[in-house]
Nucleic acid binder design. Structure first.
Length: 347
DNA sequence: ATCGTAACGGTTGAC
DNA sequence: TAGTCAACCGTTACG
C-alpha cells in the first residue's frame, strides 16, 4: 500500500463532527447510527446527535436496511476483468471460424454459448480491442494464456471473475441467478467482499468451511481495517466488529462512548469534538450488541444494546410515532445505553 | 423540518 | 515503482 499520511486529523463538518474525507466513518459510529434508528430515533436526530451529516445517516441506514450490514463497502480495487483467457480463446475461435464476424456477433455468441453471461460479457468495444490487440497479432494460440499473470484459479472454468469471492450458491457465477441470496441484495454486479454474510462474518449458511478460518473472505484492508487500521484479528471472531466496534467495556453503562481509532490508524482521533466521545488512546472494545435485521436475521454483536429492539418491526413500523421530540424513554435509553446526552430540546 | 440523492473532492487498492 | 482507473467514502446542497 502506498505510504499513508502521517496524520490525518480529519475535517469538521457543518455539525461540528470530525470526519476524514474519503474514509468511512468508524464502524462504531455506523453501528450507533443503526442502534439509534432501532430505538426509534429519527435520522435527523441521529445526525445531530452523532454530528454526522444526515446524508450519511441516510446512506448508512439505507444500506443497513438493504443489506443488513452496517459496514462500508470495499474501497478501491478493480472490477474483475471480463476478458479472461477463456473468453479470449473463444473469441479467437469465433474469429478463426468466421474471419468476417462482427464484434457484436461475437458478443452474442459468447452469450449464446454460455461463455459469458450478461453480467460479464465484454462490451463490443472490448471485443474489438481484443480482436485488434490480442488476436489480430496472434498467430499461435496460447499466447495470451501464457501471460502468466492470470489467476490460475480460472483454469478450467468456463469463465470466472478473477475475484475469488465465494458465491452463495453455485449457480451465481454462471450468472443465471444474479442478485445473491434471498434477502440480500448486492448493489453491484460483481461480487463484493461485503455481502452481508461476509461482512458480518456469518457465512455458515453459504460456506461452512469458512468458519474455521474466520477471514474467509479476501483480507482486503478496507473491509475492516480500513476504518481502524489495526490488522484483523485472526481469531474466530467476527473480524470487523471486533476490530472496530470497540466499546468501552469497563464502564458498564458505556458512560464514555469512547470513539477513537486505534493508534495504529492514521487518523489519530475521530469523533464529534463536542460530543465528548473522543477518547484518544481508547480502543473500541467488543461488547456484542445484537442488531437484528429484518431481512435475514443477521446480527451484529456489540454488547448490551437491548437485543429486543428490532430495526424495522418494532422501532419503525409502530413506535416511530413519537418521533420528535424524543420521548423520555428514548432519552433514557440513549443515555443509559450509549452514554449520549441528548439535548432535552429536540430542536 | 425532514429526507432522499446527485455532485463533489477525497482515499484506496488492483492492475 | 509510479500512474491510471474505478470502486467507495462522507459532506454538501438541492429539491
Amino acid at each position: 500500500m502506498k505510504k499513508q499520511k502521517q496524520q490525518t486529523y480529519g475535517e469538521v463538518n457543518q455539525l461540528g463532527g470530525v470526519f476524514v474525507n474519503g474514509r468511512p466513518l468508524p464502524n462504531a459510529i455506523r453501528l450507533r447510527i443503526v442502534e439509534l434508528a432501532q430505538l426509534g430515533i429519527r435520522p435527523c436526530d441521529i445526525s445531530r446527535q452523532l454530528r454526522v451529516s444526515h446524508g450519511c445517516v441516510s446512506k448508512i441506514l439505507a444500506r443497513y436496511n438493504e443489506t443488513g450490514s452496517i459496514l462500508p463497502g470495499a474501497i478501491g480495487g478493480s472490477k474483475p476483468r471480463v476478458t479472461t483467457p477463456n473468453v479470449v480463446k473463444n473469441i479467437r475461435e469465433y474469429k478463426k471460424g468466421d474471419p468476417g464476424i462482427f464484434a457484436w456477433e461475437i458478443r452474442d455468441r459468447l452469450l449464446a454459448d454460455g461463455v459469458c453471461d450478461k453480467y460479464n460479457v465484454p462490451s463490443v468495444s472490448s471485443i474489438s480491442r481484443i480482436l485488434r490487440n490480442k488476436i489480430g497479432s496472434l498467430s499461435q494460440p496460447g499466447h495470451y494464456e501464457g501471460g502468466g499473470k492470470q489467476n490460475p484459479a480460472q483454469a478450467g472454468l468456463p469463465y470466472n471473475p478473477i475475484y475469488p469471492y465465494p458465491y452463495p450458491n453455485a449457480a451465481s457465477p454462471g450468472g443465471t441467478k444474479m442478485g445473491g441470496p434471498p434477502g440480500v441484495s448486492l448493489s453491484r454486479a460483481w461480487p463484493s467482499a461485503h455481502t452481508v454474510s461476509n461482512i458480518l462474518g456469518i457465512r455458515a449458511f453459504m460456506d461452512p468451511a469458512a468458519i474455521a478460518s474466520a477471514e474467509g473472505y479476501p483480507p482486503k484492508m478496507e473491509d475492516w481495517g480500513g476504518v481502524n487500521r489495526a490488522p484483523f484479528p485472526t481469531g474466530t471472531d467476527k473480524p470487523g466488529l471486533d476490530a472496530d466496534l470497540k466499546y468501552s467495556q469497563q464502564s458498564s453503562t458505556l458512560s464514555t462512548y469512547a470513539c477513537a481509532y486505534s493508534p495504529s490508524n492514521q487518523y489519530g482521533v475521530y469523533g464529534g469534538p463536542a460530543g465528548g466521545y473522543v477518547t484518544p488512546g481508547h480502543h473500541w472494545q467488543t461488547q456484542g450488541t445484537t442488531l437484528p435485521h429484518p431481512g435475514n436475521g443477521v446480527a451484529v454483536h456489540a454488547g448490551d444494546l437491548h437485543p429486543s429492539v428490532a430495526f424495522k418491526h418494532a422501532a419503525r413500523d409502530e413506535d416511530r410515532k413519537p418521533l420528535s421530540p424524543l420521548s423520555k424513554q428514548q432519552h433514557a435509553a440513549l443515555s443509559s445505553i450509549h452514554g449520549l446526552g441528548l439535548p432535552t430540546s429536540s430542536s
